[in-house]
């Protein structure tokens, strides 16, 4: 993984920025394995976001361990980046208002494994070839992929939901010319080698399709 900033605005955006949280050696390793020269992932400590121009970045990757209070202090900048056509992948539970359109996280009520069952609401290329069953269980244990939900903004696509009540878990929506993928659980790139390369393909997709 390289540590620098995205190319100047105006250059072809072929780089995405991964905000890291101080664990320098392990940050984003599961994702960066799938980077290529024309789909580079640049690691940047989250607190250096102030100094990094976002305009040249094809995407911004925000992991579950991020300081959301810090991000919320930069919410205006993040929203401008999105409105101008940027893409963001956000993991974890939203606890601070840093993401335009996102509601606060709520845990799924109930403690039975069926409350944590992942349901596919619609097909999406990021999860092609990965079954909802495989997302639900690891060694027979449910709950690693997600344990709660966020209210989808108007017009959002809900890809996966949880439990019989179908609480929204993987949500994609537009903000201006840009788009957000919110996965309300552990970092998406931890879930096997199937998802990470397709996630990057989505992030770098110049058509901007949801």
């Amino acid at each position: 993984m390289r540590s620098t900033t995205c190319a100047e605005a105006g250059a072809v955006p072929r780089q995405a920025l991964l905000l890291t949280c101080g664990h320098v050696e392990t940050a984003g390793a599961a994702l960066s394995r799938h980077a290529t020269p024309d789909r580079a992932i640049l690691a940047l400590d989250q607190y250096a976001l102030d100094a990094a121009p976002l305009e040249g970045c094809a995407g911004l990757l925000i992991g579950m361990h991020s300081d959301q209070r810090f991000l919320a202090a930069h919410a205006g900048r993040l929203e401008r980046y999105l409105r101008q056509g940027g893409s963001m992948v956000v993991n974890g539970h939203v606890a601070y208002p840093f993401l335009p359109g996102a509601s606060s996280f709520q845990p799924v009520p109930g403690g039975h494994p069926r409350d944590l069952e992942v349901h596919r609401e619609r097909a999406h290329p990021i999860w092609a070839g990965v079954s909802a069953h495989d997302l639900t269980f690891r060694r027979g244990v449910a709950g690693f992929y997600g344990r709660g939900w966020h209210r989808p903004p108007e017009g959002a696509l809900v890809i996966h939901s949880l439990g019989q009540e179908r609480w929204p878990l993987d949500i994609i929506w537009r903000v201006g010319a840009g788009r957000v993928l919110l996965h309300g659980g552990n970092d998406l790139w931890q879930f096997g080698d199937g998802i990470a390369p397709r996630l990057l393909a989505w992030l770098f997709d110049e058509s901007g399709a949801l």
């Binding site: 949280c21 607190y47 579950m64 361990h65 991020s66 300081d67 959301q68 209070r69 810090f70 974890g92 539970h93 939203v94 606890a95 601070y96 996280f105």
Partner: peptide, 28 residues
């Protein structure tokens, strides 16, 4: 210390333990 993550938020500011802390210090 509060690291600003969602889980620090839930554990520190959630109703279960919030009353135990005399001071919450945002780490940065």
């Amino acid at each position: 210390l509060d690291g600003g993550t969602y889980y620090h938020h839930e554990t520190i500011h959630g109703p279960r333990y919030r009353g135990l802390f005399d001071r919450v210090l945002y780490a940065p």
